[in-house]
């Protein structure tokens, strides 16, 4: 009995998606929604299998992954050092805090026209705007990670007679890593969101965003739902990947 329950527990996470598919099927079977607007889940999944089998989706999938990772990379390379620098001087952070909070609160998609003026309808534009949105998140989290470094740990190092640089490198920087990783995880999700939006609305020839809007334009709903599901799965997997890296690298996170 208890063994059966244990097995059940492991499969619990699958229950939610199954319920969603059941509800989806129910809506169609009860004829609440016309099949032209919402294809049955079975047909959608079958279509997904076929586009993966034929390789038809790989070009778009890869384009989106490439743009997201490029944006994320740029955001990290600029955001982490800048955030750490700002965080180590409270005065410096306070003086730009308003700017960071302002742009962080502005939906990046609202800035698309501005970026269009600067970069034109190019691939660089999509990467630039996604980098910008993701960078603000990275910067903000890294800065707070350094600022919230435990005072006791910093004092402990100071009292050992360790140099200022080493107090910074060995304590404040290490201390900020947990928060920085929270920032990186949110940033990769943000980069994906902006890349998808940019692929939809900044003249694009490929990418999952392009695939979704294209399918919608020609009323190929099966293709549209399939691409939405793939996009969702991509976001989920990226998040999962970062969680795993975080758990391995920042082993002390949440424990100290």
């Amino acid at each position: 009995m208890s063994k059966v329950l244990k097995l059940d527990r492991r499969w619990l996470p699958l229950l939610g998606p199954l319920l969603l598919f059941a509800l989806w099927q129910l809506l169609i079977s009860a004829q609440f929604v016309k099949p032209v607007l919402l294809p049955p889940p079975g047909a959608t999944l079958a279509h997904m299998a076929s586009v993966f089998a034929s390789g038809a989706i790989f070009g778009d999938l890869w384009a989106t992954i490439f743009r997201t990772l490029c944006s994320f990379g740029i955001a990290t390379v600029i955001g982490v050092p800048l955030g750490v620098m700002l965080g180590s001087s409270e005065a410096a952070y306070r003086s730009v805090e308003f700017l960071i909070d302002f742009f962080r609160s502005t939906p990046s998609s609202a800035l698309i026209p501005l970026f269009l003026l600067i970069f034109g309808i190019t691939d660089i534009n999509k990467i630039a705007i996604a980098s910008f949105g993701a960078m603000l998140i990275v910067l903000f989290n890294s800065a707070y990670g350094v600022m919230n470094a435990k005072k006791t740990r910093v004092m402990a190092a100071q009292i050992m007679g360790v140099s200022k640089w080493h107090v910074f490198k060995d304590v404040m920087l290490m201390e900020s890593l947990a928060q920085t990783f929270v920032g990186l995880r949110s940033a990769v999700s943000m980069a994906l969101v902006i890349v998808i939006v940019a692929e939809m609305f900044i003249g694009s020839e490929n990418g999952l965003g392009h695939r979704i809007i294209d399918a919608q334009q020609v009323f190929n709903v099966k293709e549209m739902y399939c691409s939405i599901l793939v996009t969702g799965a991509l976001g989920y997997l990226l998040n999962l990947l970062f969680l795993l890296i975080e758990k391995k690298l920042i082993h002390w996170s949440g424990k100290a």
């Binding site: 402990a156 007679g161 304590v171 082993h251």
Partner: peptide, 17 residues
Amino acid sequence: TKIGYVFQNYRDALFPW
């Protein structure tokens, strides 16, 4: 002068990494 210091809050004083 070389000094040592032991804090009340040992959890916050050690480096967990």
